[in-house]
Simulated scan of single mutants.
Amino acid sequence: MSAWNPALSSPNQAIICSPKIAALTIKQSKNPMFVMGSLLNVIPEEIAEYAIKIAKLKHMTVVSTGGSNIMLSKLNFKPHYNIGAVELINHLKDSNWNGFCGKGNYDLICFIGVPYYIGSQGLSTLKNFAPHLKTITLCKFMHPNADLSYPNMSYDGWVIYLSKLVEYME
């Protein structure tokens, strides 16, 4: 018999989403941001290419954290802003923040490539202190503190999910 674990039974866990639901959520957003983390530098380029396609299809504000601009530069893509993940989370939780462009706070924050231990804490902060935001992770690991998240999957499954997301967004 195991002890009750609130982390595994919280009613506020992320909803595991399909590529179609992710695409619909991104399409419906009015002012989305795509946060790309340092893991883009250590995973195959095709994941970063999919992330760039998704950002371009919705004209998302792209924020580079943790040196992900190295991979993005290699792919001839310039993110709109470079900022530390913790500093970005502090800005996002402020409902009065006008965003980087001065157009108001963002309504959807997509994450990919942010190391799990940082992403988990950042998503927990946003979940508890930024009810004005919706969060989605497009990582290959499930993030229970996001509003929507992909399930844990293999690399091949992740590529399929990302390719279908791009297909549904086109």
Rank of each mutant, 00 (worst) to 15 (best):
M33Q: 08
M33S: 09
M33V: 10
M33L: 14
F34V: 10
F34N: 09
F34P: 01
V35A: 05
V35G: 03
V35P: 05
V35Q: 05
M36L: 14
M36W: 04
M36C: 12
G37N: 01
G37R: 05
G37T: 01
G37A: 10
G37M: 06
G37Y: 06
S38K: 14
S38R: 08
S38G: 07
S38P: 09
S38D: 11
L39F: 01
L39Y: 08
L39P: 01
L39H: 12
L39K: 14
L40G: 03
L40I: 09
N41D: 08
N41M: 08
N41T: 08
V42M: 10
V42I: 12
V42Y: 07
I43D: 01
I43A: 08
I43H: 01
I43G: 03
P44Q: 12
P44W: 04
P44G: 09
E45R: 14
E45G: 15
E45L: 10
E45I: 14
E46N: 15
E46D: 13
E46W: 06
E46S: 07
E46H: 12
I47R: 04
I47Y: 10
I47T: 09
A48H: 00
E49I: 12
E49A: 13
Y50N: 15
A51E: 07
A51R: 07
I52G: 07
I52A: 05
I52E: 01
K53F: 00
K53E: 13
K53A: 12
K53D: 10
I54K: 00
I54H: 00
I54T: 03
A55N: 04
A55Y: 02
A55E: 07
A55C: 08
A55Q: 08
K56D: 04
K56W: 03
L57M: 10
L57H: 02
L57P: 01
K58H: 11
K58P: 07
K58I: 15
K58D: 09
K58L: 10
H59N: 15
H59E: 13
H59D: 15
M60K: 00
M60V: 06
M60Q: 02
M60T: 08
M60C: 07
T61W: 02
T61S: 11
T61G: 02
T61N: 09
T61F: 09
T61L: 13
V62D: 03
V62W: 06
V62P: 03
V62T: 11
V62C: 10
V62I: 13
V63P: 01
V63Q: 04
S64A: 12
S64I: 08
T65K: 02
T65S: 03
T65M: 05
